[in-house]
Every structure is written in structure tokens, then in C-alpha cells.
Design a protein around this nucleic acid. Structure first.
Lengths: 341, 341
DNA sequence: CTGAAAGCGCTTACAG
DNA sequence: CTGAAAGCGCTTACAG
């Protein structure tokens, strides 16, 4: 494997010139630069990662701490891991994966051994021991998601509260006054995930502010659990004409099946919004209006915020990504016959 | 951050003694070892990762190349990434994640820069450019999954062919002579995933060898696609009394729903096996006999094979993990009324 | 059982 | 615009 001396020899320059030519940290003569490029290409030279870490100030590796536990919804989670990894690559960073079984120990290990330049925290809980550890660790970090206590942290996420509000606004604009919310299974709220709480709180607050009748139901396990939750909504809101779903794909699919079975037609009898969904709702039947949860949005910016911390001070703060509403025709103005269950 | 000199000074020894004490590569006096341990603990010392890579022969990092593309079934895939990461940690290895958009370029990059000591290939296709690249790269590697051409590779995976055979054997032992297989959607076979082909081929060969009537149907999209596939099976095998499902959870769930809708009771009217499933079939109604696909099995051994290559020559070979059959009561002896559709 | 020292392959002041 | 050299923090023969 060629090293920097081989390149320098082949190009007829010193190793420092090779190093500067590759890093671009000082200007190099046109002729010289060409010879170096040619030598690098011919020899297939890549700087040795260990030497680069040791001599330089950067390792060019970020740690991504992701629980990946059984409770997480895999497709959404994988999208975030993927988005972070791809975003990091655009900054010439590789990603080291730290899993739950080693969450805090792993962070301490990679920090103390200077293996990584920064940390991305994924799937943060409302009260998360990893965020506590970040204060003690001498490394920049970005949290994707908003824990309850954000002091001293750089956090970014979709604005779930605003997404709930936006969903309701759209329904209210069309004249809906009785609106239900189908949420995640109860255990999702219990285990302390941050975003379902934020969405639900946003829904309740917006319903109050908009003075609409509202109810929230959380589905139990399987299609039967979804059916029970829909029953609950129609019980509490016999005149329900609008439904906001903030839950994973299998539950939304079950809900649509169940509504169809009951002869409730969307949007004629019920206007529906799929909120903060990381999957494609355009292939549902019918296609649903959606506020998409785009992993890349938060992750690209999150990685950017991490890279910024490497070169300058970034004040701890929370950044919220504005939700976008995609109209697919699943909201209409309710008619006198709407809402019959 | 404390370095090895700080530890040596605190313990009153030379840095080489500290290094040897930590690596265990030569014996250290009882007294000395204690003083060094104490100093390490007091100072919170961790060897600098870059220095360790540069001076030593190992980086203590493995690359995991995982497509993570839209077509992969996320829950199963995530389980494998997690299992590899955890297995690597037991050997004091961290895992660097390489994604599809950079599959071969990433492998070349980490190999040439000596960032990693070895490579784990996940979700290998029958014809995969990554396996071709492995031959050119001067790094040990293990492939989880069996591509068509395994020459020069160390591969490990569940024995999908044997799993298909075992499923049929169980059904045949109970007296079934007309057995259908519900597979993955056609695009899964088309895109070249390795294991669905192996299972289907195993199913066909075993059906021939056991001289049972058999048919294979692949579901289209959604519940309607599953329904059509079941129709196809009952058309080709009007007397079908046994069903082997080798597909992901949503499809199996749909199939069970559809069978229930038709009044086909399991196992009374149809004996069912869920084969090579990475999800829990004990919560299905009814619970299904299953040959589980356990990510940890292949990954623990796969990482072990990679670690072995670091210290000695390992001949290229294919290792197959023997499938286990879990009986949950979804296979019974067919009665004269069984199989009525 | 332990130490002094070379060397891994870079980056980056320092110097011109 | 370019070069000579120190130094990053380890590991590992070499020596005793």
C-alpha cells in the first residue's frame, strides 16, 4: 500500500507538499498539483486513517447512537440511520454504530479513545441517559428528536406539535368541528419516546385553541386493537367527520381496512390526514393527505450542525423543521350525511 | 485527556510496561500490574484510537456493508445489523456502516485507508458486485448469505434449502400429500436476493424427492395480492392440506386473515408452517409452527470467522446453520374433511 | 520481569 | 510557492 512518501517521490516533491495539496490548506503551483494528482491516481494512494487521526485534529468519524431495540419501528428507524450515514458522507465522515446494549458505555469509550469527532443521538427518549452523558463528554453532538430537558443540547426534529396543529387547521378550514386522533399503541407513550407525546400534546392544544370537539384513542395490539380504538373515537365523538392518524403504517392500514368494512367511505363520510408518516400514503386506497416525516430533512441539518460545531462554537438550541402538508384529496367539506357511523 | 505517559508516570513504570500490561502480551509483576491498573482507573485512561491503529496492526473496526435500500424488509435487516454490531463488540470491535449508495466505493475507501480490519457483507445478492470486489481487496471478509458464486469467499447463512425440506418433511410425516408454498412478492426474486431463491429451489426439490403434489405462488401487492396467490394455490392444488409460508410478516398476517375469512380453520382444514421467519409467530392466531431465522446465529459465527481470519488462514468455504423446527400445533394429521376450500 | 528507543504515516508550525 | 523537521501516542522488537 502506497504511503505519502511514495507519492512525494513519484511527484518529485516533499511529503508536506503532498499533504497540503490533498488538504487544500495552502495553494500549490499548477504544475506541482498536476504531478501530485497523477502520482496519487497511479499509486491508488489514500491517506492512512490512523495516521491522519493521530497527526491531525480530526478522525473523520461520527458515532451514531441508536437504540435499535425491539420497541422501535424498524422501517422508520432504518431510514434515519441511513439518512445520517449518507449526510455524514457528504462531509467526508464515516459513521460508527453504537447500539443500545452499550449506549452510554459506548459513548464514553469512543469519546475517551478519541475515535470519533462527534455524536449523533437517534431515537432520543423524553428522559434519556445518553443526553445526560453528553454534558460530561468533551465532544460535539446533535440530538435528532427533542427530549424534555434540552438544556445545553443542540437538537433538531420535525415540529410535531406544529404538525398536529396543521392537521387540525386543514380539517377546520374545510368545516370539520368534530375530529378524532388515532395515536400509537399506549406502550409507545409509556416507554418515553419523545415525538408521540409532542404530537398528542400539540393535537390537544390546537383542538382547544380551535374550539373543536376532539378525542384521542390509542390502539391495542393487532387489527382488533385498532377496531377498539375506532369504536372509542366514535363513542366519544358520535358526529366525528375528521380523523388524524399519527401512528405507524400497519396501524393506518388496519384502520383503513376497518373503516371500509364499516362502510365508512373516505373522504365522503370521513376526512382523514396521515400525520408525520415516514411511509408512502399515496398507495393507500384512497391515497391520504399527509404530513410526511422526512428522515433526510432532520438528518442532513443535524449532521450540518455537528460539522459546524467542529469549526466554531454553536450555541445550544432547538431547531424545528416546518411540517409540509401534501394534499391528496382525503379532506373534503363535510356534508349533512358525513360522519354517520 | 490522559495519555500513556501520564499513566506510566503515575504508576512509576515505563510506557512499554503500561502497553504490555494493557495488551497482556507479556507477563507483568503482580505489584506493577496493580499500580498500573490503579493509574489507568484514576486517570480514566483509554488508548488513543488513532495511535493504536498507526502503531499496531489492528484498527479494531469492522466495516459492515448493508444495502439498506427501499426493497429490503427493514425489521429483518435491522436485526442483522444489530446482531453483527453486538457480536463484533464481544471481540472488542466497533462497526462502521457502509450503505448502498457507496457500496463498492466505500469498501475501496476503507480498505485503502486501512480504516478497518475486515468486512462483513450483509444482504448479499445472487450476483453482487461487492463480492467481486472482495477478491481485489486485501482484507478478510465474511459474507452473511450465499451468493451464486462463492469461490474464494467465506460465507455463512441459515440453510434455507434444508429449511424448505424440513418444512415439507414435517407435513409429509403427518400425512400431507398436497402442499402449497406462499413465497415473497415476485420483485424480491427478481432483484436477486439470495435466500428466497434458495428456499424455493429447496421446496421444489424436496417436493419432488418426497413425491408430493406441490405448487408455489407469489403474492402481489397488498391483501389483494395475497388473496390472489392463495386462489392460485387452491386452483392448482384443489386438495391442498398443507401450506408453507416463506415471506415477510405482513404477508403472513394477510394470508391468515384471508384464510379465516374463507372459513378455513388452521390446523383443522389446513396445516401451516412459517419458514425462515425473523418475527414472532407465537402471537399469531393461531400460533404457527416455525423455523425461525435467528440473525444472531449467523452473525455471531460470521464475526467469529472474520476474527479467525485476522490471526490465521481460513480456507474459503460455505457454512450453513442447521434450521430448527418449533412445534406450536399448527400441523395436524389431515382428516377427510381437511382441505376443503 | 522491565526499559529505552525506533517507527508507524501523517499534519502543521517554522523557515525561506 | 515549497521543504525539512517536530510531534501526535501508541506498539513492539531489541536489550538486559
Amino acid at each position: 500500500m502506497a504511503n505519502i512518501h511514495d507519492v512525494a517521490r513519484a511527484a518529485g516533491v516533499s511529503i508536506s507538499t503532498v499533504s497540503y495539496a490533498l488538504s487544500g490548506k495552502r495553494s500549490i503551483g499548477e504544475e506541482t498539483r498536476k504531478r501530485i494528482s497523477a502520482a496519487v491516481r497511479d499509486l491508488g494512494y489514500r491517506p492512512n486513517a490512523g495516521a491522519r487521526m493521530l497527526a491531525g485534529t480530526k478522525t473523520h468519524i461520527f458515532a451514531v447512537t441508536a437504540p435499535l431495540h425491539a420497541e422501535t419501528y424498524a422501517p422508520a428507524h432504518m431510514a434515519f440511520v441511513l439518512a445520517v450515514t449518507q449526510a455524514a458522507r457528504t462531509h467526508d465522515y464515516d459513521v460508527l454504530l453504537l447500539t443500545e446494549d452499550e449506549a452510554t458505555a459506548g459513548l464514553q469509550r469512543v469519546a475517551a479513545s478519541r475515535l470519533v469527532d462527534g455524536i449523533i443521538v437517534l431515537d432520543v427518549a423524553r428522559d434519556d441517559e445518553r443526553t445526560r452523558l453528553l454534558h460530561e463528554i468533551d465532544l460535539p453532538s446533535t440530538v435528532i428528536g427533542i427530549p424534555d430537558d434540552t438544556e445545553g443540547l443542540v437538537c433538531i426534529d420535525l415540529d410535531f406539535r406544529r404538525a398536529a396543529e396543521l392537521s387540525l387547521e386543514r380539517l377546520v378550514e374545510h368545516g370539520h368541528r368534530s375530529i378524532g386522533m388515532l395515536g400509537h399503541p399506549p406502550r409507545v407513550y409509556e416507554r418515553g419516546s419523545n415525538f408521540p407525546h409532542r404530537f398528542r400534546a400539540g393535537f390537544r392544544d390546537a383542538a382547544d385553541a380551535l374550539a373543536v370537539r376532539s378525542a384521542v384513542a390509542l390502539p391495542g395490539h393487532g387489527p382488533a386493537g385498532v377496531r377498539a380504538a375506532l369504536n372509542e373515537l366514535y363513542e366519544q365523538l358520535p358526529d366525528m367527520t375528521g380523523l388524524v392518524m399519527n401512528c405507524e403504517e400497519p396501524i393506518q392500514t388496519s384502520a383503513l381496512d376497518e373503516l371500509a368494512d364499516r362502510g365508512i367511505e373516505i373522504p365522503r363520510d370521513l376526512s382523514v390526514v396521515s400525520a408525520c408518516s415516514s411511509f408512502d400514503t399515496s398507495r393507500f386506497s384512497p391515497p391520504l393527505d399527509v404530513i410526511p416525516l422526512v428522515a433526510a430533512d432532520s438528518c442532513v441539518r443535524g449532521v450540518e450542525l455537528l460539522v459546524e460545531q467542529l469549526v466554531s462554537d454553536v450555541e445550544p438550541h432547538v431547531e424545528l423543521v416546518a411540517p409540509q402538508f401534501l394534499d391528496r384529496g382525503s379532506i373534503v367539506t363535510p356534508t349533512p350525511t358525513s360522519g354517520r357511523n
